[in-house]
Structures are given as C-alpha cells and as structure tokens.
Computed example of a mutant assay.
Amino acid sequence: MIPNRGAHVTRLAVKEVNDIFEIRKALHGLMVRKFISVDEALIAAMDRDVSELERLSEMPEKVTEYVRISARLSMSIAARSDNTKLAEMIRSLARQTMRYTQLGLADPTRRLESAKNWRRVANALKAGDFDEAGAASDQLIEDSRHEAVKQLEATNAMSDKPKTAT
C-alpha cells in the first residue's frame, strides 16, 4: 500500500521469488510433517479436492479454478496445523506467491504434475506417513517455484527487449 495512492503491485525479482518459495517450501513441509493425526473429514475433503484437481488439470481454460482449489487444499492443511503461527506464515507466503503460482499452473502439463503431487500428499496423509507427505509437499512447492522462476525470466526477457518503431 502506498499512502494517498492505494495498492501498488510490484514485480518481484527472480531472487525474491526463489527466496519466498524456499521459505514456503520449508515451512509447508514442516507443517505437514508435524501433523499429530489426520481425521476422516480432512481425508474426505482432500480426496474430493484432489479428484477435482485431476479433472481440471486436463482443461486448459480452467486455470483459475485449479489454482483456487489448490490454494484451498493448502489452507485446509494450514487450518489443521497444531501451530497457529506456522499456519499464519504459510497463508502469508501463499498470498505472496499466488500470482506466480497461477502463472506456473497455466500450462496443462504443469497442472497434471501438480495434481499428481497433491494426490501423493493426500495418500501419504491417509496412510499416516507424514514424512512422505512432507516430501510430496516439498516437491509440489519446488515444482511451483521452478515454473514461477521460468515464467518470470521469460516475462523479464520480453520486457527487456528494445521496442522498435512501426
């Protein structure tokens, strides 16, 4: 927010995106690994949402819906965290990376990979294997970081090209 001018959206540098995703990955993985138990309601909700992600991953026009459900999955995991400060940090970092996550998930192949990772997280939580759930969570966020950086570098390369007069 800029006083007397309102909201201003900044373009992050590649290093900033890498830094934010690195922190998000570490904290999200920690959160998933620290689950004490998983209840049936969480598993049922995750199964429904992951099934929807799998369906949407093959629909090029459904990027926004895919990102919304993916964010809902992250937030539902955060809400069940035993550490409220950790959950708040996860939510904040997710908001900071949302536009880069959306850019990265624009590609149907990338959404398919994401859906597979979400399925891996859900299956691991269902089995009570929190280390596997954490590893799947790490992969989910690392893939998102990689694609976000790739998209950002492509965008920066396009905006850095000299403009020619027509």
Rank of each mutant, 00 (worst) to 15 (best):
A71N: 11
R55H: 12
E58Q: 12
K62H: 09
M31W: 00
E58G: 13
D47Y: 02
T64F: 03
V32W: 01
M75F: 13
E61N: 12
E61A: 15
R72Y: 05
A41G: 03
I36G: 09
A45R: 13
I77E: 09
L73E: 11
M75I: 10
R55K: 14
D47F: 06
L73Q: 10
P60L: 07
I43M: 00
M46Y: 04
S51F: 05
V63P: 01
S51V: 01
A44F: 03
V63S: 01
Y66L: 08
A78S: 10
Y66W: 09
R68E: 09
R48N: 11
S76H: 11
R68L: 05
D39W: 05
M59K: 15
L53M: 10
A79V: 03
T64M: 06
L56C: 07
F35E: 00
K34D: 15
S70C: 01
R68Y: 02
D47T: 13
I43L: 06
S76N: 14
V63Y: 06
R33V: 03
V50H: 02
A41V: 12
I77Y: 04
S57C: 08
R48F: 10
E40G: 07
L30V: 09
R68M: 04
E65P: 08
R48G: 10
L30T: 15
K34R: 15
S57W: 04
M75V: 09
A45Y: 05
E61D: 15
M31L: 15
R55A: 12
R48C: 03
L73S: 01
S70V: 00
K34M: 13
R48L: 12
E52T: 14
V50K: 02
K34A: 14
T64D: 15
A79W: 03
E58M: 08
I77H: 02
A79S: 12
A79I: 02
A71C: 03
S51G: 15
E52K: 14
E40I: 05
I36P: 02
E52F: 04
F35Y: 11
T64K: 11
V67P: 07
P60Y: 06
A44H: 08
M75Y: 14
D39I: 06
K34P: 02
F35Q: 00
S37M: 07
E65I: 07
L56V: 08
S51P: 00
E65T: 09
F35V: 03
L73P: 01
I77A: 11
S57R: 03
E40H: 02
I77M: 14
I69W: 07
I43S: 03
R33N: 14
S51I: 01
I43P: 00
E58V: 08
V38S: 01
L53K: 03
P60Q: 06
A44Q: 10
L42F: 07
R68C: 00
R68Q: 04
R55L: 10
S70I: 00
P60W: 05
